[in-house]
Design a protein around this nucleic acid. Sequence first.
DNA 1: GAAGCGACTTGGAACGATCCAAATTCGGAA
DNA 2: TTCCGAATTTGGATCGTTCCAAGTCGCTTC
Lengths: 377, 377
Amino acid sequence: MVVLRRTVPATGSQVHTRKNWIDPNTSMTADKPRARLTLNDVARGCGVSRATVSLVLRGSPLVHAETRARVEAEIRRVGYIYNRAAANLRAQSSSSVALVVNDLSNPYFAEFAAGVDEALAAIGFVTLLGSTGESVQRQQAVLASLVEHAPAGIILSPAEGSDGASVARAVGPHVPVLVFNRELDGAWDYLVMDNRTGARLATEHLIGLGHRRIAFYGGHRDSSSCRERRDGYLQALAVAGLEAAPRWRIETAPTRLEAARQVGALLATEPVPTAAVCYNDAVALGLQLGLVARGRQAGVDFAVVGFDDIPEAAMSVPPLTTVATAPRARGRQAAERILARMRDPSIAIARQTIPVQLIARESSCPPPDASGNRRHE
Amino acid sequence: MVVLRRTVPATGSQVHTRKNWIDPNTSMTADKPRARLTLNDVARGCGVSRATVSLVLRGSPLVHAETRARVEAEIRRVGYIYNRAAANLRAQSSSSVALVVNDLSNPYFAEFAAGVDEALAAIGFVTLLGSTGESVQRQQAVLASLVEHAPAGIILSPAEGSDGASVARAVGPHVPVLVFNRELDGAWDYLVMDNRTGARLATEHLIGLGHRRIAFYGGHRDSSSCRERRDGYLQALAVAGLEAAPRWRIETAPTRLEAARQVGALLATEPVPTAAVCYNDAVALGLQLGLVARGRQAGVDFAVVGFDDIPEAAMSVPPLTTVATAPRARGRQAAERILARMRDPSIAIARQTIPVQLIARESSCPPPDASGNRRHE
DNA sequence: GAAGCGACTTGGAACGATCCAAATTCGGAA
DNA sequence: TTCCGAATTTGGATCGTTCCAAGTCGCTTC
């Protein structure tokens, strides 16, 4: 029966201490009502060999239709459950994919995970979940733990500050990795959003509405996605010949709460901007709230653009103009990508850039003094 | 190397068709740079036996300190990766737990999943993810697929309309199941929220504020959690001797969007209620939006109470009064519970009810005409 | 110097499946 | 009837680990 073991074999830098040892003989074993059924039980039950049952289970055309029917009936009758671990051991294959993200409570990652699982489940694979909470140490531990389950591939959104070499060491040379969402030093398969273009589109949208003083609001300076979005913003300003004042770049944690708190800093700049490109939707929604608290209103006297198009974006007051990246579809895409590599490991590693799309809603209004400007759409 | 197989062995009612067969001989195999390292390689590398290396990996006190050091050095040197599937096969144990939820994009479940994974990762277990999308068929397929990976336990939030017998058949008699969040016919371990008490507290809070016409807003009639919450609401009304008009019970899908759309139906009742207990926070937030669209404002001329205390609840305008259930902590609790059962399968199955807590914020105001009433807190 | 005793190490069997080469059965052709 | 190839079935070896009974070693004790 199932035996719970507290120790985790140390294959990396982790070292065992003696006190972790649980003597397998003294550890309690379940009273087994019946042992788990195996191929042999089924085979015996319907008078064929192990090998034949195995062929039936795998849908081989080699078995006679009548035999197949008999075996399938027996399988159903006794409630046999396939042991995929044993099969994978012998066949040197795997039917799971590991997904490592920062935090599922971020709706963006939750949607992404749902997309991954959806695509994997469709072909009978399971998703092994791991979350790092943005901690590099936890990431190493999680990767070490997951890789021991021999996933066919790993989809990784690296924690901030990850070291590519450490990741490579933890994963080993045999499991394909797809890096998602963030940069990681080294040669990896990538699936990244076109952050730069997205932010550029958002900024150009605001410029087109007549804004001249545009802030870049929120996000951590050192996060790669934030850097890229900021670059897109700066690029659009430069092309339009507009000022890119550093005081209009406000750094916040990428959460609603922090963003709401920092609105004062934004409005204290002189001259005050009339619009903001936000690091992501959470920040943008926080900015909207902060504006309300200070007697302003997004979409009326201040224009706000977000990034991600999380479900809340369409439902906020006012509905948020944002850059859509369709996380669920991205999840499916990531799964497809890693499956493709598993099918043919020889394909070249590549960086795949996800196109983004500007969704104009009501939070982006023309500037108060832009009566002469026409609204572009 | 890894071989991708499209077919899913049919152990349940699923039947194979011949066209699914992929001949293992013709399916492409990876060019193997080096075979994966095994215990034997490590053993040979440092001149001890397989068994000794195995003992080192498991932190046994039986091995000499010097030997252990030599083996650990070799393990690190060659980058050996433990094959947990093989170990589990021989030891008849497991180090994974399956988690089956409706939909990760629901922030409540995402938080719950994060909690489960957090608790499991702490003891070196991994989470196998499955989502049903509220489909009973998908649930059967997902369970069948997960159970083949021999999880040590399953945490299941059943899809609406699940049949306990089918679930039992899919899971088999050897894997402990913890049912979460919803009722399922049959004898199961349960972890359920105290929906009734929560809704009662919410309703009593509104009654205490002076409301006399209180609606129950949102949710599906046939969902067990909705039924329980409605019962709590009715109970509170009955105790206070207030009318429980059926026209004040509005059914909606449990989403923000649907809830916002149905506000018209709520305000069309005669006499119109002054407050609403909502099925959950998503519905409550939708209600708040819908009120704004109709010239009313929650927390000013209409009181709204939600359920769940999702992160958005504290950040909405106005902040939402709600019933907190701490999904992340619930996730941890669920994991602990299933681990406890694995340690000792003989413990009696039980129903564990999660206490809930009313969080009063600003969306629940006294009724407009209640000038004489004092506000209770 | 033989026996006894810890402390440590070890080789073969086993877990439940797949692979593979060989065996068996089945029809039809010679 | 006999033979042949195609169709179908099969038993042993094997995947990488753990279990277990038995082994080796060094040291004390009589």
